[in-house]
């Protein structure tokens, strides 16, 4: 665990030493801020719903952008060989990467608490829905992060890693939107596999373990595939 934390700290420093973290955080705040202020001032509605929705939408692009370098760049630069000859297990390395992305996303999500405070002063806030929304947003970020890292472990080209990661994440986002076009059986499966469907559930304020388990399972699966990719020791 100690090594995982050392790795995560290095990754976080790399985000914050360059412009990446600041660009991501400020653009994320600008977009969510707009979607928070809009209903509040124009429709006089004290709800975080549209803010959560846009945040989950922004994650579709931002998370694979944050993870695209995670293994692809290490492979290109050859540093993967250094990492994987330290006295650590491969999974500790992967966990370190996932931890760093999760923490950065947690910072991004945390900054939006400003809106929650504002709303709770101005109007009547549904705390259950807010809590569910935040939990959903975090789990969404974690899952997208695990998928993005997995995509990055498949290539040494960052652009390929981004497109691949985004493609997979977008597919999981779209699943519940094509339910009407397929039969009811396949539709039910697709709906269950949709990341957006479970997010909608959590946003309603009912925290169902099935939704939580779904995100954790998908993240775990992406984690295992990443571990398999690394075990093959790609050049």
């Amino acid at each position: 665990m100690h090594h995982t934390w050392t790795l995560a700290r290095r990754e976080l420093r790399a985000y914050f030493d360059g412009p990446a973290a600041y660009v991501v955080l400020s653009v994320f705040l600008a977009i969510t801020g707009w979607f928070f202020a809009n209903p509040l001032f124009l429709q006089n509605e004290a709800s975080l719903r549209s803010m959560f929705n846009i945040a989950s939408f922004v994650f579709l692009f931002f998370v694979p952008a944050l993870t695209m370098s995670s293994f692809a760049e290490e492979r290109r630069a050859g540093t993967l060989e250094l990492l994987l000859t330290f006295p650590v297990r491969d999974w500790q390395v992967i966990l370190g990467k996932l931890l760093s992305v999760s923490l950065l996303l947690l910072v991004a999500i945390g900054l939006t608490l400003f809106y929650v405070i504002t709303l709770s002063i101005l109007g009547d806030l549904d705390f259950g829905a807010t809590l569910g929304g935040y939990l959903g947003l975090f789990l969404l970020g974690l899952t997208y992060g695990a998928i993005g890292i997995c995509a990055s472990s498949l290539t040494r080209n960052q652009i390929v890693a981004f497109i691949l990661g985004f493609g997979i994440i977008f597919a999981f986002f779209l699943f519940d939107k094509i339910v009407d076009f397929v039969g009811p059986d396949l539709g039910a499966i697709l709906q269950f596999l949709s990341t957006d469907y479970h997010f909608e559930n959590l946003m309603r304020g009912v925290i169902d373990s099935r939704d939580v388990v779904f995100y954790l399972s998908l993240s775990g699966f992406a984690f295992l595939v990443t571990n398999y990719n690394l075990a093959r020791r790609p050049e």
Binding site: H3, T6, L7, R10, R13, A14, D17, G18, A77, G78, T79, E81, L82, T85, F86, P87, V88
Partner: peptide, 30 residues
């Protein structure tokens, strides 16, 4: 791995890091 020090071909390093920080990171990983 604990008994071996390794310098891979073409000396991969985290180029964006400062030398001291890099060595500190490796020491921690070791």
């Amino acid at each position: 791995r604990r008994r071996i020090g390794y310098l891979p071909e073409s000396t991969p390093l985290y180029r964006e890091m400062v030398t001291y920080d890099y060595l500190e990171f490796v020491a921690a990983m070791r």
